[in-house]
Amino acid sequence: MYLIHARIQPPGPAPGPDAPLGPGAARALLAAALPQERIEHVVVHPADGDDGCDCVVLGVFLLAERLEDAECTVAAFCRRTAEVLPALRGWTLSSVNAPLVAPFYERLLDGSGPAGRIRPLPFSSSENPFHPF
């Protein structure tokens, strides 16, 4: 399963954080998914302007064989739904990509020991160097 973020740009000024696309947008998007797209879940994140874009971010969880396939599927899904869902008419796709999960791994490594190890090395006297600790 992949999580792909699609940034979509409204035709006019960005909607406020309280109403990114109106109530039920995530449900409507999920309902518009085709079976072959293998989309499992959709989340709508309001525009925050932090990245210099007034884009709304769609978090799309889907099954795919490869990351490239997942990104292409989400791009096609967004373009298609912009034509068929009234709430998305006029919206344009700005970008599609997998979000980085660096903060998760940084948190795992934070304060974990010398040289960024997330678990100690096995005891040198251990008979099994791959001891499960």
Rank of each mutant, 00 (worst) to 15 (best):
M1R: 14
I4D: 02
A6C: 06
R7N: 05
I8N: 00
I8A: 02
I8T: 00
P10C: 09
P11M: 13
P11F: 10
G12K: 11
P13F: 08
P13Q: 12
G16K: 01
G16R: 06
P17K: 05
D18C: 05
A19L: 11
P20Q: 08
P20A: 04
L21C: 07
G22T: 00
G24R: 03
G24H: 05
A25K: 01
A26D: 11
A26N: 04
A26G: 10
A26P: 01
R27L: 14
L29R: 06
L29F: 12
L30E: 03
L30D: 05
A31W: 05
A33Y: 11
A33G: 07
L34T: 00
P35I: 06
P35A: 13
E37C: 05
E37D: 06
R38E: 13
R38W: 03
R38Y: 02
H41I: 00
V42S: 11
V42A: 10
V42N: 07
V44Y: 11
A47N: 01
G49D: 05
D51N: 11
G52C: 08
G52W: 10
C53D: 11
D54I: 00
D54S: 08
V57W: 14
V57C: 15
V60M: 11
L62A: 12
L62F: 03
L62K: 01
L63N: 01
A64V: 01
E65V: 04
E68I: 01
E68R: 10
D69A: 15
A70P: 04
E71K: 13
C72V: 08
C72Q: 15
T73F: 03
V74T: 02
A76T: 11
C78I: 01
R79T: 01
T81N: 02
A82C: 13
A82N: 04
E83S: 07
L85K: 04
A87I: 09
L88S: 01
L88V: 00
R89M: 03
G90W: 09
W91F: 15
T92E: 05
S94R: 12
S94V: 01
S95F: 14
S95E: 12
V96Q: 05
V96W: 13
A98V: 13
A98M: 10
P99F: 10
A102P: 00
A102M: 12
P103A: 13
F104R: 04
E106Q: 15
R107C: 09
R107S: 11
R107D: 06
L108N: 03
L109Y: 09
D110F: 10
G111H: 04
G111W: 05
S112V: 05
P114M: 04
A115E: 12
A115H: 09
G116E: 09
R117H: 15
R117A: 15
I118M: 15
I118C: 15
P120H: 14
P120T: 12
L121H: 04
L121I: 00
P122W: 10
F123A: 15
S125I: 03
S126G: 12
E127T: 06
N128R: 13
N128G: 02
N128H: 07
P129I: 06
P129K: 07
P129T: 02
F130M: 06
F130P: 00
H131Y: 15
P132N: 01
F133M: 14
